[in-house]
Design a protein around this nucleic acid. Structure first.
Lengths: 220, 220
DNA sequence: TGCATGGTGACAGTCAGATGACAAACCGGT
DNA sequence: ACCGGTTTGTCATCTGACTGTCACCATGCA
């Protein structure tokens, strides 16, 4: 679920926005305290920021400039000023989009999803220790050497990685791999695990997958 | 200088737009004849297209869908319809942005420059290793020798190149190649891939396209 | 010692995909 | 409309990667 941070001083508008976004299925939080906004922006783990250009104390543009020095989280500027030159400026200051008040809710949501879609590609790669796990590439890479995983191996590894350090039952793996109506030999899983282990060993993780008898497997 | 193609049937609006853009320093041309717009779009060498969603004969959405199969020139949709669902659709159909009528000139210009800026990176001459890929000419050239690709081969190669190193599913390729209602043999894709492989091999890339069974293809 | 649980190398079947050949469809030129 | 070349889908046949099965082994617990 995507998290959105709202920075808007008009309390009515702010609450409206929060509710609109929450109803749409975003996780929306609003900054309510107007000192040290920059640090709040930096601290919050968000996927997108809605930033009012008019703020007490500060102004949105300089705030954005400062923020951009440290983060590239997408930012949509909110503005009520008619002097649109401000908007031009904010675009060159690193905003990803802008919306003029009063906002039409549908358009607002559209712009949000458009920006999120545009920036989605840069999504961070998953890591297993110092190895890059890429499901889109279908491979694991560790300092140069790459192991290509088959579909089954990838399914297993993803599941184990999601719950790294925890026990994943054989049953859970089985249901992830096969429709539970087609009956396959129990041993098929062992074999797939074994093959995955082989590839992990090639990458220098010889004992990555531990067996917990009668319980399942643990990825260290 | 950036070239912009205007597709808008309201003559007054069209002329206004043309003049506005020209005064701002763009090279603006408008489609004036409403038969076979798609081919005019494909033929025109433009950097951006303004496309009215309401057109006589056709509608902007399907036009865009068809266009997207062959080009990724940025497109901004113009719409007067209040039913904004249409807008949602056009975004997922591959529009880069949209503007609701009546447009504010400054905002229009802003959105144009924003879209151009966003897409500037992608517009750079396509390269595959040391070979030049020209989608306009429909060919790949590597130190002197040139291979001319057919339309299908080009569509496949473009898609693979866009996601070089990543798995592209057969499904994605199929939908890029064919309207998903016309039923074509699964094998048709394999054949096209095979032919493309042949041409890449001629250029000295014998194993450029890897098969990942049950997953898709990867362009190395 | 014996049984249960899982590991692993070898083998084999299957099916996704590859490919050569052919023909229909398409396209540009006259 | 006709003609030649090109493009592209279809068919038949082939190939090999993936994955399940099997047989046998290792480990550990009662």
């Amino acid at each position: 679920m995507k998290r959105i941070l709202i920075i808007e001083d008009d309390t009515v508008l702010r609450d409206e926005l929060t509710i609109l976004l929450q109803n749409t299925g975003y996780e929306a939080a609003a900054v309510t305290q107007y000192q040290d906004i920059l640090n709040q922006m930096l601290a919050a783990q968000t996927d997108l920021i809605l930033l009012d250009i008019n703020l007490p104390e500060t102004n949105g543009e300089t705030l954005l400039q400062e923020f951009r020095k440290q983060r590239d989280t997408p930012v949509i500027m909110l503005t009520s000023r008619t002097a649109e030159i401000d908007e031009v400026l904010s675009m060159s200051f690193g905003a990803d989009d802008f919306i003029t008040k009063p906002y039409n809710p549908t358009i607002l949501l559209l712009r949000i999803s458009a920006v999120l879609k545009r920036t989605a590609k840069t999504a961070a790669a998953q890591m297993y220790h110092d190895a890059e796990v890429s499901s889109v590439k279908g491979s694991i890479t560790r300092n140069g050497s790459e192991q290509v995983l088959t579909k089954n191996e990838m399914i297993i590894f993803q599941l184990l990685l999601e719950r790294q350090g925890e026990i994943v039952t054989r049953d859970a793996l089985m249901t992830a791999l096969w429709d539970n109506d087609e009956f396959i030999n129990d041993n098929a899983l062992s074999v797939n695990i074994s093959r995955l282990r082989g590839k992990l060993a090639e990458l220098g993780f010889p004992n990555a997958i531990e067996t917990r008898k009668k319980q399942g497997y643990v990825l260290k």
